[in-house]
Each structure stands twice: as structure tokens, then as C-alpha cells.
Amino acid sequence: MNSAVRVLMAAGFAALVATPHQAHAWGANGHRLIAELAEAKLPAATRAKVQELLKLEPGATLVSIATWADETRSPSTAAWHYVNFARGGDCTYEQPRDCPEGKCVVVALERNLAVLASAQPAEERLTALKWVVHLVGDVHQPLHAGFADDKGGNLFQLRAFNRGTNLHSLWDGGVILNWPGGEEQLRAAVTTAAAPQAVGKPSEWASEACRVAAAPDFYPEERMVPDSYFERWRPVIAERLNAAAARLAVLLAKTL
């Protein structure tokens, strides 16, 4: 490894140690694509209820609110975006162990779904809708259901697409932003990906995502990530995005 690469990776490591879990699952492009595809799947009655809430913010759409939770992130809500599992386990979710004090993506999603389904004021239900749209995306990103020992891949340094980064950031946005053929080819890959076998619930989605992160070849052996890694995992990313969109649509239809 040359000195320039070493300096870059060391700087990235220092920043990640200081501010863990700051990466945004799927990045803006991924979250917006999930919302776009989910909206297309909504029954007419559900779409009308969504639009009624969105009218509270002129110009807002399901796509535009998909990144709100990242744009307004604060120390009090940072832990809502992920859940940590213990490495070497079977990825079974246990709330007392994996979500202390209810501060994780699973409980945050369940809590906001309850608000969305309630008779609370419309403003509070709109905020809950923003959280739900975003967190469904988060819980499907494998490193937002990764392992505590490396802060969901944040501490696993590597180099990809000609820059120093870490595994978490690579999965959040690096692979998506460098998708062969760009956004249209990404959309095509996601829309034709295998549909999820079951809808399930947030805790099951977290366990499912964790099992992806626990796969033997998920962590690249070479820190200079080879093309073969992306060829192996692009179809899985497409499936994760497709599952998030399909499940978000079902969840909104059941909740509203």
C-alpha cells in the first residue's frame, strides 16, 4: 500500500472512530428509489391517504420525504437507523440484547408505525410517515443490521472506485453511485430482482439483512476491492432494494 493510500485510509478511520454510524443507508438515491417503487405498488385508497398527509407540506412527495430522516438526524435519533448484532450468532433478534432501551431501527420503525396507524394529529402522523418510509429502507441494508464489533462495517477500511472508504459506506452508496449504466440500469436491476418470499415484520427483516452481512464472502478479503466483489453482490443489493420497496408498499397499505 503506498503512502498516499495509507494516509487517506487512516484519516477515514479516525473520522469514523469519532463519529460512528454516520453513513446513510442506501444514500439519497437508494432511499428515493425505494419510495418511488413502493408508491407505484400502492392501492389507490392507500395512495390517497398518503397524499392527504403530504398536503400538509406543499410540494412534498413520498420520494422527497424518503431522505428526511437523514437530513434531520440528531444525537437523540441516530441509533434509530440501525441495529447491532453480535458476530458469530445466528442473527436472531432479541430486543433486550440487541435493542437496549428501544434505541434501534426495529423499535423505531414499530413505534412510528403505531403513530401512523393512530388517531394522533395529522402533523404527527406525517412525521411518522417520514420515519417509516426511511427506516424500511435502513433495515434492509445489511450493514444497518451488522455487527457491533466494527460498528456495522464503519471500521472496516478498504479502497474501492479509486478512493479510500469503508465497507459501510461502500454498501450505503458507493456501489449504487457506481452502478454500471447509471441510475436507469440500477432501476432496471431492482425492478427485475426476485421478489421477497414473505412480507414479515421489522425484526425479521433485520435478521434477514444480518444474515447477508454474515455471509462468508461479504467482507472482502482484499482491501483493494476487486471487480469480482461487485459482480457477486450487485444482484443482492438489487434484491434488498426491491424487497424494501415491496414491503414498504404492503406496510403502508396495512397501516393507513
Rank of each mutant, 00 (worst) to 15 (best):
P75G: 06
W205D: 02
N242A: 13
G88L: 10
T191F: 03
T61C: 09
K201S: 12
D138Y: 03
P235W: 07
W26D: 00
E231V: 14
A44E: 13
P202L: 01
A44P: 04
F218E: 09
A198W: 07
P96R: 07
F156L: 13
V132I: 13
K49A: 13
T61Q: 10
L256K: 02
R111D: 12
I176D: 04
A194T: 15
D172Y: 00
A23W: 00
V132S: 08
D70S: 12
G152W: 01
G174S: 07
C91N: 09
A119K: 15
L62S: 08
K41R: 15
S76W: 12
K201D: 11
R240V: 00
Q141M: 09
S203T: 02
L116M: 09
G200K: 06
P121C: 06
P43H: 11
A86Y: 02
E123A: 15
A11F: 11
G102Y: 05
S74M: 08
P121G: 10
N166P: 01
R232S: 10
V5G: 02
V50Q: 06
V106M: 05
W80A: 13
A119C: 03
V107F: 10
G88N: 07
Y219W: 07
E124Y: 04
G59L: 08
R247Y: 07
V225D: 00
V136M: 10
S203M: 02
G30Q: 04
A209S: 15
E52S: 15
S169N: 09
D217G: 09
S203W: 04
Q120D: 15
A38Q: 03
F218W: 14
Y219S: 02
E222H: 12
Q185C: 10
Q120E: 15
V236W: 04
R240A: 04
A114W: 10
A23P: 03
E110R: 15
E123R: 14
Y82M: 08
E101K: 13
H144L: 01
H24D: 11
N84S: 11
N178F: 11
R211C: 03
A246L: 08
I237D: 01
A86E: 13
R247P: 00
E124P: 00
A206Q: 00
D149R: 11
N166F: 05
E208K: 05
G153V: 04
A45H: 12
T127V: 13
S74T: 15
S228G: 10
L155K: 12
L256T: 12
A86D: 15
G152S: 04
L16A: 14
E94P: 00
Y229P: 04
E71A: 14
M9N: 11
G88Q: 13
L256A: 12
A48G: 06
G12V: 04
S3R: 14
Y229D: 01
H168R: 11
Y229E: 08
A10Q: 13
F147Y: 14
A66R: 05
E123D: 14
V225S: 03
N2S: 11
V106I: 03
A69D: 10
